[in-house]
Design a protein around this nucleic acid. Sequence first.
RNA 1: GCGCUCGUAGCUCAGUGGAUAGAGCAUCGGCUUGCGGAGCCGGAGGUCGGAGGUUCGAGUCCUCUCGAGCGCGCCA
Length: 631
Amino acid sequence: MLRTFLASVFRAALTQLVEQGRLPQEVLDVRIEIADPKNPDHGDFACNIAMTASKVAGKNPREFAEMLVEGVKLNPAIESVEIAGPGFINLRLNSEFVAGYVGTINALGQNELAKQSPVETPLKINVEFVSVNPNGPITIGSGRGAAYGSTLCNIFEAAGHTVHREYYINDGVNSEQMRLFAESVRALIKGEPVPENGYKGDYVHDVAKELQGQNLESAEVVVLQKASEHKMIEAQRSALAAFGVNYDTWFSEQSLHDAGTVAVEIKSLAAKGIANTDPTRTKLKLAKGGKIEDVIIESQTADVDDEGEVQLAEATAEGETLWLRSTKLGDDMDRVLLRKDGRLTYIASDVAYHKHKFNRPAGADKLITILGPDHHGYIGRLTAVVAAMLLEPSEPGEPCQDEFDAKLYRDENEKAACQKALKEAREKLEVQIYQLVRFMKEGKPAPMRKRDGNIYALIDLMREIGTKLKPEGTEAEQLESGKDVARFFYLMRSHDTTFDFDLDLAEKQSDENPVFYVQYAHARICSILEKAGEQGDANLALLTHPKEKTLIKRIADLPNEVSRAAEDYGVHRLTTYAIELARAFHGFYGDCKVISEDAALTAARVQLCEATQKALKETLDLLGVSAPERM
RNA sequence: GCGCUCGUAGCUCAGUGGAUAGAGCAUCGGCUUGCGGAGCCGGAGGUCGGAGGUUCGAGUCCUCUCGAGCGCGCCA
């Protein structure tokens, strides 16, 4: 808010200079950034526009800064302006003006502060996250994706985008893994040992127990598979809900097959020529930097060893493999769509699925898929799939001159069409990969599997942390406490980097735990507000203490942090911000007594506490962490 | 071999091409007849893996290099 205001002051000054013919038009294109000065003695904010735009302006930075300052210093909100170093413009704001913002903030509705810096072009975005197979619980590894994805969605919404939260259920009946899962459940229902390589965790027993007595022992495997998937999905859904993650859509892969959509899309790809049954596979040999070093076309006559039922034989001549020629679309090798035995691959449903996704929200501009660290190889494939879907058929044209292009493409027209489709796919589909989390216990990495062979589930993590933090609490209280701490920890670091989740620290109910540092600030404010009781109108101009100014500046920063996080997907900015805001408050609390003999000052400081509480609450809401009134 | 990510204080990590590189933990010292001490204030601790380059200016961008994690054919 304050930054936006200052940027507008600079913009006005620049515009005036342009109108006077003293600067070229182009300077208005340079983005104006309002930064924190390195040293607080330099002022409240700093602007480096005189340096970043000096080239365009054709002036040296100092001279340029002098010109700008003439206009800027006329604004009554600005107390002083100084040019420093190579051309920084340091600004000090009028305390009274800054204090006035407290009133503006308190006048905003619930959750409106974070929305004060909306994006210029709001988008309709589909965000798919977690989407693990329905053959096990949500693990602590997926927990990072769940925390990250859900918070990213919250941030997008605060920044003005329209968001659709989506979970993709990999329930295709052709899946080997799901079939094995069903067979394992069947064995347990019958009281027999599970098949070799089968599923053995507690959750399989849970599923089997729930399905006991439904006469499913001898049912077809597909029926059993549906039933056990259903149970598993319910368990996933409730674990995610306990973790504060809710979806607009749980989308079933199988529903696409049932509706015949996959078959239609596959035929459409074949008609476009991007898929065919030629018995070859093209591979690209890539040099450093992704440049094509060689195009290798292998003949594919080798057999497939699977023995599945033939379905959808009409899409291709029987017994032939249908290939997606994804090397035309930036992938490093062609991919199988339809196996020789007639079963479709996962990629086949992906084509239909991504087309479908553009309807959620209606007319979606962008699809964001959040994947775990072991999936980054999937980006090229997924992009090729979307490009294949977007590809438009091309007329015959001139043969390609380039040696490699001639091997890859039919002609120049096809090459151009493929490149266009790929470019569009890269704009519309964004894959965000989060990195690995290592769980540390007593300074050593904790195994992802427990001693009994069970997977370490997210719900167990929440329970473990919760029981340590609230040994006397109810189960619901423990779960919530565990959720708060787990979410905050997952979100503390950039999703882009591997990090260590310190379980010992998470389970500590003390000042070392950053979650409590933030929550404590909120509880402390609530306590003060309760004690202060109802206060009348306040003269905010009394808020002149440096700690007060620092706190107000920090509160007013929330919209700025939100819009930056929405821009670079850096969700961890919000946890960092929450800690900084809490620190600013604790600092203020130490130096400024809120409730005092001075009634006017008390009223003003109570207002400041309310504004702080609002900013803290909104930040924690975005993070999916609760803001307790007492601890 | 190729790709993705990372390398910053003893540890875990922030850092929008800008000024003297910052937090938390650990460590050392100080603050209670006051609104919640789960707090506040201060000290010490750095060749930003290395080498070049672009720039008025590089932890940040480019190239190379060393190291770590992960991924690379009809699994999903």
